[in-house]
Design a protein around this nucleic acid. Structure first.
Lengths: 344, 344
DNA sequence: TGTGTCTGAGACAACGTTGTCTCGCAGTGA
DNA sequence: TCACTGCGAGACAACGTTGTCTCAGACACA
């Protein structure tokens, strides 16, 4: 157990070499599984490694290696604590795991400055690639940041100012499907309630709503267009105000999770949860256990993460085809709230 | 815009030095904010940095630096996709952010082998510290893995075989409070339904249940002790079976999130959700919107993450006091399901 | 026996950066 | 004018590792 280290910290290959009575380079060969080492020496090296608890420093390795891979990718999401981001994160991790790659994560909180700070932090750590759900309006800074030699994949939201693979939900189609579903159930006064207009998914979902209304020959009433809701309390109070109007909508289409939940709370407080129809974009846990259960346009964050990670690793491994755009389909899940008829 | 790089990849300090007409070391001084550089040269260096989009390689920096900090910590959780882990992760990130530290994450899925693999992967990346919710029974391997020079903090579950700071919820107290609450509402036949017994939190919550029963002079019926439930479907079918027995319990105490949700589903299917009382350990979104709303013992994963991160950074910065144990209190939230009286 | 080939293993430089040492030069005081 | 001080800035080695080169020795063959 007596360790013969020159330095006080972790043992290095040199310490292992000394302990095993071989050259540094031979230790390197054993660690990297190069075949041309005689079994006798290899065994000596192995036991020295175990005696000293030697662990290679992949930072130093990376510095010298020709492929320059750190075995680390970066993942920038809206908020690793929210269910959508968390599910996507998990799927990325699963893909990374099969390749022995680790994942550095960061939350952007819709803050463009934070996005740039984190991009820089990850550049300085020489991540092999980046998956990002961008918060800022323009990602052209990324090509300078990464010198165009680190692949980038956009997920959930498209990037701007830089060509890269992109993985998106079918926001327009899904929102149109939700709206059409409400129209098919007899609704005409349908309100759209969405997130900040600067967020592209919010704009697309609104677009889908408009498309479906127009396709049905209905004129969307601007009074029913309610953007810039970002939190549950904001959505709740806004819905209460909306339903107190002289001519309230008979159906609500909510363009985001927290907004949907705010709407559910508001309808409950007003006792209108069995009267006013509701469809939310993005599924959430227990939606099926509410009264009435909430009809949603479900996204598939796990698939988005998986496809994004596969695209990224493809690029890291040398795929240099033109950037691709992957559409991940949404699904209408009928549960009750979206099938309520309009009042008399 | 013409870049004068020797190498084809990212520019190095050498490239910046050449472009600015100064020595490599002067660039290093400017990058590290050493004051003793004349303003003129510093400005030349700055503009060369910007022209070349130079970004320091903190891996190389770390290799040479005396403090040996990578500015990266590792976080090992049960599953970054579940709400508890995700909330904890987010809190750790927030603490790390104030210190310009990035977070490497990994999910263990109750797999001891995965725990060891990830510990090794993070050692090889020379993380400055580790926060872990352990899946294996013994973490003594960590002191070899980290050579005792990388601080470790256990969170949610205690570690074994290695002394380290530990951040735990008051599982026994919280579970006892839940059970007492049911007893106070007149229940005598109370079932405990929990996760795998090998998980320490599951054992502690069961212990709290036993404590409260005994304190009330009740003998816990072994038939009402139902361990090893890990998923919602398993919990759902088990609860259905349980309530079909000749003498079913009048109240359920569920020791974990997914089990609670399985119980809610089962009670709904049986139409007993207003008859059989239910208290769950760990809060979950929308628990207050169910019918009846679900009474829970709420944990505070964000506080657990924050305290764990603060403890870890304290150690990283040199705190060498004996290991501490931090207890994060749980809170009983009365919502209705836990206040139902026993049937006649 | 001499020559050539092969193989295993060590020597050395280099990756990008920082710690330490040294040196030149301007400014100071006698 | 001459030492002395102080300060800015460069030279050099080193961190832990791998790529490349070289060399010693075993072996085969003419």
């Amino acid at each position: 157990m007596a360790s013969e280290l020159t330095s006080s910290g972790r043992p290095s290959m040199n310490d292992v070499a000394r302990a095993a009575g071989v050259s540094l380079k031979t230790v390197s060969r054993v660690v990297n599984g190069v075949a041309s080492v005689s079994p006798v020496l290899a065994a000596q090296v192995q036991s020295a490694i175990e005696a000293l608890n030697y662990r290679p420093d992949i930072g130093a390795s990376n510095l010298r290696r020709s492929d320059r891979r750190t075995g680390t990718i970066a993942l920038l999401l809206e908020d690793v604590g929210n269910p959508f981001s968390a599910a996507l994160h998990r799927a990325v991790e699963d893909e990374a795991r099969t390749r022995d790659v680790q994942v550095l994560t960061g939350s952007l909180d819709e803050d463009p400055l934070r996005e740039k700070e984190l991009a820089r932090a990850f550049t300085m750590r020489r991540a092999d690639g980046l998956i990002i759900a961008p918060a800022s309006a323009d990602q052209s800074y990324l090509s300078a940041e990464f010198q165009d030699d680190t692949p980038v994949v956009f997920v959930d939201r498209p990037g701007h100012g830089i060509a890269a693979d992109t993985v998106l939900a079918t926001n327009v189609i899904g929102a149109a499907e939700a709206t059409r579903h409400l129209i098919d159930h007899g609704h005409r006064r349908i309100a759209y309630l969405g997130d900040y207009t600067r967020i592209s998914t919010a704009r697309q979902r609104h677009q889908g709503y408009l498309d479906a209304m127009q396709a049905a020959g209905l004129t969307p009433d601007p009074a029913y267009f309610i953007p810039d809701l970002h939190t549950t309390p904001a959505a709740e109070s806004t819905v209460i105000e909306l339903l107190h109007r002289a001519e309230p909508p008979t159906a609500l289409f909510t363009g985001q999770n927290l907004v949907t939940i705010g709407a559910v709370r508001a309808l409950r407080r007003l006792g209108l949860h069995r009267t006013v129809a509701l469809i939310g974009f993005d599924d959430f846990p227990l939606a099926d256990l509410l009264e009435p259960a909430v009809t949603v346009i479900a996204q598939d964050p796990a698939m988005m993460g998986r496809i994004a990670a596969q695209a990224l690793f493809g690029r890291i491994e040398g795929d240099d085809a033109p950037p691709r755009r992957h559409w991940i389909p949404t699904t209408l899940i009928r549960r009750g709230s979206g099938e309520l008829p309009p009042g008399p």
